[in-house]
Amino acid sequence: MFFQQIINGITLGSIYALTAVGYTMVFGILELVNFSHGSVYMFGAFLCLTLMTALGLGFFPAFIISIVITGMLGIVIDRLALLPLRRKNAPKVASLISTIGISIFLQNLVMVMWGSETKNFPLALNLGHIQFNSFRISYLQMIILLTSLILMMGLTLLVKKTKIGKAMRATAQNMEAAKLMGINVNLIITFTFFLGAALATVAGVMVGMYYQSVDPMMGFMAGLKAFAAAVLGGIGVLPGAILGGLIIGVSETLAAGYIHSGYRDAIAFAILIAVLLIKPTGLLGQKVQKKV
């Protein structure tokens, strides 16, 4: 029972982690909480589903196309709603409201286009499971874990080793200085939004397969929890998002199993608040010395 919960929790947590990365990257660079991220995650899942059912595409082509299109959507969001605010040097909270506007827009757009009811997500990869003594792991869970692991490692390498990763880190450290060094900051931001949205799509589609259903509201709670995961780990810190995602995933699964399933969402937030009280910058966040 316990092991089963842990495995389910890690699976869920790795999906949170993929979504949390989008929050943390955007925050790292723009110091903005991007509230549209949850809706983007939902949109990606719906798009993939539609490509499969309406156009009859196979799972993999549908998956790839939806990643690319949703990634583009991330770019459009930034260009259309956020760039004009950055140009005007608008307060951060104005951008925050803008992303909330996007979230409302997307969510209702999906409802109008696909209806507000829960949709069946076809089990594209029905592979069975491995039974151990007291618990079992489905192949789908292993695929989810493996995919998340590979993507996270890829992302870490990208940020640490490549030229564009270096530019991303520089932009996050100091946007003005990065500009002066000849980095095309807007291109970096565009790339970040693309990456965040693409990863969110992967997460959304995997959740769709895992629960075999999607609905227009699915991005809401998942988005909040992914945001919580990013903050828990230390917002702006990539490994922090992964750690935060896993902790939230495991703790809410355990809470649902051992305490009360009704309180499952509350537990994640309670843990977050408790951690922040002890470590105000999140688990892996660095304390910044006040500059006077």
């Binding site: 259309l80 709603a81 004009p84 605010l85 005007k88 608008a90 104005a94 951008s95 409201i97 803008s98 909330i100 506007g101 996007i102 979230s103 409302i104 827009f105 997307l106 969510q107 209702n108």
Partner: peptide
């Protein structure tokens, strides 16, 4: 949603 997005800038 669109009004919120348009109003802000």
């Amino acid at each position: 949603g669109a009004i919120l997005i348009v109003m802000m800038p």
